[in-house]
Design a protein around this nucleic acid. Structure first.
Lengths: 127, 127
DNA sequence: CGGCATCCACCTGGATACTG
DNA sequence: CAGTATCCAGGTGGATGCCG
């Protein structure tokens, strides 16, 4: 009985720091990649399978989970056509579009960094 | 014995998707907040305790862990003065500075979103 | 095609206590 | 002041199998 099992009320990390807010909203592994590929597509629209292929490494479970959450949070819109076989299209909703500038700066930064890393490695490896 | 315990080799999620690269590098809960407050400070420099106070909600354990990683990844520089009591200053390294534009668009987006949410709630709540 | 349900390994991050 | 050490709960995300 030396340790309290600590009940500890649920803290949704309420904060007024915008960066933390953003981390909470879109800070998981796959949300930005998904949004990025939708934003990057024709008409900012992609089907489920197209997403599964573009977002390399994601599993169906995670893709579905993220898509549901992004839909609930109004980042994307889901449109279902009752054809056989079924067709589902995901597109950027208004809120998703507001993210594009941020998405682009992050992409830009990361792309630069990756190129820099490669350059260092190549110039090293030809010695 | 119906289930394999799956040894499963360590996969560092190697990818060539820049967004995933960024998520891996700076996608944890506290790294961007920390970088943000350092970037925001006079001379882009803050002491340990100042950080602890500005990054509301972070614990010393997490702060130290993140600072070590950010230092290893060349985002920040640590300068120690052997005074009594000790003084340690964290500042943006070159690589950290390259992140500022992205940091700012994320901040900008999140700030807008938070204001929008508040506005909706206030106009609702005065009915 | 476009999912959902289940199960579980691992990682992130919080609590607590102690130190030079 | 500026940490370190230990412990552990809970969340994140992967694997697998099945369904309309």
């Amino acid at each position: 009985m030396a340790k309290k099992p600590l009940p500890k009320e649920k803290n949704i990390y309420e904060t007024d720091c915008p960066i933390l807010y953003a981390m909470k909203m879109i800070g998981q592994k796959w949300k930005l990649p998904i949004l990025w590929y939708i934003a990057d597509a024709e008409n900012q629209t992609l089907r489920y399978r197209e997403l599964e292929r573009k977002v390399v490494g994601i599993t169906a479970t995670m893709l579905t989970k993220c898509l549901r959450e992004l839909e609930q949070d109004k980042f994307i819109t889901r449109k279902q056509y009752s054809t056989i076989p079924p067709t589902v299209e995901y597109s950027l909703a208004e809120r998703g579009k507001t993210l594009i500038p941020a998405l682009e700066s992050v992409y830009q930064w990361a792309d630069d960094q990756m190129k820099k890393e490669n350059k260092i490695q190549t110039s090293d490896s030809l010695s």
